[in-house]
């Protein structure tokens, strides 16, 4: 895991040095803030409803941030030929993927921390608990981490960043809306699709409302593991191609 730490430090340094990561965060925070002003703060509402609405649209930004922060991670290295340094060093593919994932996750965490002022404003002016905010943010973090893992997998597939972005966005959008498709189908396909939904069932029905279900946490963790494993296997397979 020493190599993971080395790669993590380089990647995080790269995020902090390059303007791209900061621009992504700034734009998402700006739009998130506008949405908060326009949709969450309109008229008289219960503070719990305002918070719920805030988490609802913030989940789009957390998901988008995950994809936007990850689609370049491997594809860009291949395009710039710097991937060879990693692939010819005594470093396991798992360590490469983990180092990059954890760096992007840290930057995603920074984005979420910077958005905390909005729920804190609701807390100051309304009657919500810290636990509701915490559960909502755990949901945002897990959702963002999942789309980040999806983006990393897509990035491992190709050297073309645009293709990686499109593939990651497509997977994330489909998995986030598979519940809608499931409602139009019959059992048992419906039951299966409902279980793999990323947003409607897990987030909207749980974290967004301040409800913490362990099975939802496990689902997100399992999905993250699944896509990270796919990314590792994709890197391994590239050596055989």
């Amino acid at each position: 895991m020493r190599a993971t730490s080395i790669i993590f430090r380089r990647e995080l340094g790269s995020y902090l040095r390059s303007p791209i990561g900061w621009v992504i965060i700034a734009v998402l925070l700006l739009v998130d803030g506008i949405m908060f002003q326009v949709f969450a703060m309109r008229g008289e509402q219960l503070s719990a409803q305002v918070l719920e609405r805030y988490f609802n649209f913030s989940s789009y930004f957390a998901g988008a941030a995950g994809v936007l922060l990850s689609f370049r991670l491997i594809a860009e290295e291949r395009q710039n030929h710097s991937m060879v340094l990693l692939s010819t060093s005594p470093v396991r593919d798992t360590e490469i993927i983990l180092g990059k994932f954890l760096a992007a996750l840290t930057f995603l965490g920074l984005f979420l921390v910077l958005s905390l002022y909005m729920p804190l404003l609701i807390k100051v002016n309304g009657k919500i608990t810290g636990a509701q905010i915490l559960v909502g943010y755990l949901g945002l973090f897990l959702l963002g981490a999942t789309t980040l893992a999806i983006g990393l997998f897509a990035s491992a597939l190709t050297r073309y960043q645009l293709i990686a972005l499109l593939v990651a966005a497509a997977i994330a959008v489909v998995l986030s809306n598979v519940y809608q498709l499931a409602t139009r189908l019959d059992s048992p396909v419906r039951d299966v699709l409902e279980q793999v939904d990323l947003w409607w069932v897990r987030f909207q029905g749980g974290f967004q409302r301040g409800i913490l279900n362990l099975k939802d946490v496990v689902f997100y963790l399992a999905t993250i593991y699944f896509f990270l494993l796919l990314a590792v296997k994709t890197l391994e397979s590239k050596r055989w191609q």
Partner: peptide
Amino acid sequence: RKRIGFLPENPPLYTDMTVIDYLKFAGELR
């Protein structure tokens, strides 16, 4: 890989790093 040093056709460089930071990174990776 521990026993080999490899310079590919296109040097594997990170343009956003200084020479010294990059070499430190490469050394630690090895």
